[in-house]
Design a protein around this nucleic acid. Structure first.
Lengths: 188, 188
DNA sequence: CCCGTTCTGGAACGTTCGTTATACATAACA
DNA sequence: TGTTATGTATAACGAACGTTCCAGAACGGG
């Protein structure tokens, strides 16, 4: 009948938009449902409770980001690596939204072991992804790729943190320029 | 009669502990008052509303961090610089608490221009502080110190972001080691 | 076409929130 | 010491929240 996954995405997308636009406080069950053009009856039909909605919203936002990664062996590992790191910068609406969802999720994850684990695992997955690209690109020996990956991620995230609430000082071009400045010593 | 500033600190400290321990959702007016050993009557006497409490909690947490900075000309600029950057790493209870407060504050700052400005200004102040130390330490020429400061802050914050919800992978020593690895190319 | 399932809207429930009001204690000052 | 201002506890209020419930619409299999 109805595509369950599509409906869920419709609802988690609405939640993400709301969180990014007006903060976690504005993302009530009623408001999320309304943003999606539905009511709480439909919302509770797809998510048992608000916590589950938030968890799925975070996961869906992650999936959305992952789907933007260059895929396959078609692209050069160096290009894929730089693209993956640029994916962590809030330089457009989608990437900014993902950061806002992540921050809101982290704020909720304090004192909630399951949510904290989700955030932790998301980071670990990203680390593995970057680490693999580092190896493929031949930037670092395999036994040191993990450290290099952590370093690269730290640099991208650090720029993102500064840029998130100071977009006037950090237009997209400046974020990208700074990331490349930090990458060039590694031959990127 | 009563030291107003001390009472306010007592209350904002209670709020910060609560936020770090159980998340922003647990920081209700009643809970904050109880954590401070008081009631809502006292709480509302010192803060007009919850938003003001949150803003002051963030500012008080910032002040607490700033008070840990090495002061005066007594210390070497290089030492002060490294110490300031290490202050951004969640390697003990106080620093972790400040990060949790910051994350909670950012989650609330979406869609609230005044809160967003407070977060933005906090970053800019830290940037100026680091920039000054960069110049004093002779690490970069004055016209490039800003960029270097941003880079250093980004590296520290990036480590912090990864470490916040994965303390098992990021003991304090490892955070410090990684920060020093990133600092050595600059002669620190 | 009918029946059972799935899906959705809408209202209701109990709880908890931020906030306000009030009563009482305590301290400062005349 | 009487009076005023200040500090705090307690209770109450209306609003909004997450959640539950139910009626009925939409749909699919027989």
């Amino acid at each position: 009948m109805v595509d369950v996954d599509e409906r869920r995405l419709q609802l988690t997308d609405a939640a993400a938009r709301l969180i990014a636009r007006a903060g976690i406080g504005a993302a009530t069950m009623r408001e999320v449902a309304a943003e999606a053009g539905l009511t709480t009856g439909a919302l509770t039909h797809y998510f048992a409770d608000k916590r589950e909605l938030l968890l799925h919203t975070f996961q869906a936002s992650l999936d959305g980001r992952r789907s933007q990664r260059p895929i396959g062996e078609a692209v050069d590992a160096r290009v894929a690596l730089r693209s993956s790191l640029e994916g962590a910068l809030p330089i457009d609406e989608g990437r900014r939204r993902h950061w806002m969802v992540t921050v809101a999720f982290c704020a909720q994850a304090a004192g909630d072991v399951e949510l904290a684990a989700a955030q932790r695992d998301a980071y670990r997955e990203f680390r593995r992804h970057v680490e693999r690209l580092v190896v493929e690109a031949g930037i670092a020996p395999a036994d040191d790729a993990g450290r290099v990956a952590e370093q690269l991620i730290a640099q991208a995230d650090g720029i993102a943190m500064q840029a998130l609430f100071d977009p006037a000082s950090w237009p997209g071009a400046r974020q990208l320029a700074m990331l490349r400045t930090m990458l060039t010593p590694l031959g990127l």
